[in-house]
Amino acid sequence: AGDEVIVPAYTYAATALAVYHIGAKPVIVDVKDDFTIDPDTISKAITSKTKAVIPVDIAGYPADYDSIRAVISSPEALRQFTPNSKKQEKLGRILLLSDAAHSLGAKYKGLPMGHAADITVFSFHAVKNITTAEGGAIALNLPKSIDQEKEYKEMRLMTLNGQTKDAYTKTKAGGWKYDIVLGGLKVNMPDVLAAIGLAQIRKYNNFLLPERKRVAKTYERLLKPYNWALLPCLENDSTETSYHIYPLRIKNITEAQRDMIINEISHHKVAVNVHFIPLPMLTFFKQMGYCINDYPNAYKNYCCEISLPIYPQLDDSQVQLVVDTLVNAYNKVVL
């Protein structure tokens, strides 16, 4: 009780609610222009109660993990770190936990996501690049002071009620006896859903991801001539997005104008979205005392953001239609 976890203002509510549901306090900080958490705001938010930082790879573009690591490994952060468990003592610093719900297949400094943080959590929700309808995957990249194999086994136990045998093992002749060794949950992925995910994984790098990249690059080419279009960063040195979302921002418009543009687009049967409403604008977090005025960059990004459709089956003519519809809507609302 009393532990704090730093999360960005610009994310879906699940990031902060995961903190809330284990009895810790989400400490919300502002983001950079690329939607990812601002390392400078992390530094200012660290206290002796801070146990973890959760960067979020919005739209699939990785956060600045090197700068975040530098912050949590700084002498001041290490001095303030106060472990409350044996695992925290072994780690010896603030945990870096990546919310990579959007960034499966993204690269950070030339390596696939899963290497950048201590723990990386991917989502296989219905709208993600790979889906198992629900569920996800966890990648462990803990320091040598932590026994990763032991952590993995414990996490597997936790997903099946803390039970020492799964259902298949119990059906073996004479294998009925089991024990409950942890206060776990029933959150394991059903085999049939895992099979659906595996089928997509087999063609992800060679088909699904390249097709998403094609769509994003086509948007980039078609929108580049418009000086009102703030295009998202897709690649930068050895860092590359997963092309999960194409988060376009429009210069010098208000939130109301953005909403009017979306409404106009919808009249032409083109579905666009907004990712996301910043946490301090949501009732639950406002009731916790958070105010969007304290997160100017999060609001600046939100009020002019429109997520354009991006999926492998979207052909170039359809991408052109989306752009034409967007341009016409902009002209009608703004000009």
Rank of each mutant, 00 (worst) to 15 (best):
G2H: 13
A13C: 06
T15C: 05
H21Q: 12
D30N: 02
V31E: 01
V31N: 01
T36E: 03
D40F: 11
A45D: 00
A52M: 08
I58P: 07
A59C: 05
D64F: 11
Y65V: 06
R69V: 00
A70G: 08
S74T: 08
S74Y: 10
L78N: 13
Q80W: 07
Q80T: 12
F81K: 00
S85T: 12
K87G: 09
R93D: 04
I94R: 06
I94S: 07
L96C: 09
A106I: 06
K109D: 10
A126P: 07
T132W: 05
E134K: 13
A137C: 06
A137S: 04
S145A: 14
S145R: 12
Q148C: 12
M155Q: 05
T159I: 04
N161W: 07
D166P: 01
Y168M: 12
T169A: 13
A173I: 15
W176T: 15
Y178T: 12
V181M: 04
V181Y: 06
L185M: 12
G197W: 11
Q200M: 05
Y204K: 00
E211Q: 15
A216W: 09
A216L: 02
K217A: 05
K224R: 15
Y226D: 02
Y226E: 06
E235M: 06
N236L: 14
D237N: 14
T239D: 02
I245T: 14
I250N: 03
K251V: 04
T254M: 09
A256E: 13
R258P: 01
I261C: 05
N263G: 14
N263R: 15
V270M: 05
V272I: 11
H275E: 10
Q287I: 09
G289T: 04
N293M: 00
Q313W: 14
L314H: 03
S317F: 13
V322F: 00
V323W: 02
V323L: 04
V323K: 00
T325N: 04
T325H: 04
Y330K: 03
K332S: 14
